Simulated scan of single mutants.
Amino acid sequence: MTVKNGTPYDSNNIFARILRGEIPSKPVFENEHAFAFHDINPQAPVHVLVIPKGAYVSLADFSVNAPDALQAGFWRAVGEVARQLGLEEDGYRILANAGTNSHQEVPHLHVHIFGGKPLGPMLLRDA
């Protein structure tokens, strides 16, 4: 799989290594489509990452190249994780960065789930 500009997927990125069991993580959920684990640098009381099981760099890459069953299973896993974490009643935020301008740090599609407190506005606004 490749990024839109043709950059190949890096099979040694940290999330690929976590999926292979080479790097430890604190699991929250796993099924055949997705793996969820606690972020090592949480930005909210609840901060979990959900990654698809497969070599996908971004949502654009995933939506074009992943089989339909994987796409559906991944998004169902995101919802299941939010439910299991007890975030439904008070609310939560889902964030997926893609590319340099969004500050994507790991070139593997991943969704952040934040919750456990009021999260404020989505983006800072210029005054």
Rank of each mutant, 00 (worst) to 15 (best):
G99W: 04
P24C: 05
H47R: 06
A69Y: 02
H38N: 09
L70Y: 05
H108A: 08
V50C: 10
F15Q: 07
L87P: 03
P42C: 10
F29C: 04
V78M: 08
Y56Q: 06
P42D: 03
V28F: 02
A72H: 08
G73Y: 11
S63H: 06
W75R: 03
L85I: 03
G91A: 04
A34I: 15
A72N: 04
A72F: 00
F29E: 02
H38Q: 13
E88T: 15
V48E: 12
I23T: 13
A98R: 04
E80L: 07
T100S: 12
W75P: 00
Y56P: 03
H33F: 15
Y56F: 15
R20C: 01
V81K: 10
V64W: 00
P42L: 07
Y56W: 13
F37L: 06
L70I: 10
Y92G: 03
H47W: 09
F62E: 09
R93Q: 07
R20V: 00
V50D: 09
L19G: 04
F62M: 03
N65G: 01
V78L: 06
L95P: 00
Q84I: 03
S58V: 07
A96D: 02
N65L: 01
E88K: 14
D90C: 00
P67C: 07
N101T: 05
V46R: 02
F74M: 05
G54Q: 13
W75N: 01
H103R: 11
P52R: 08
V106D: 11
H38D: 08
N12P: 02
P27D: 14
H108D: 10
E30A: 15
E88Q: 15
K53T: 13
S102V: 01
S25L: 04
G91I: 10
I14T: 14
W75M: 14
L19S: 04
V81W: 12
N12M: 12
Q71H: 01
E30Q: 15
D61C: 13
A77V: 10
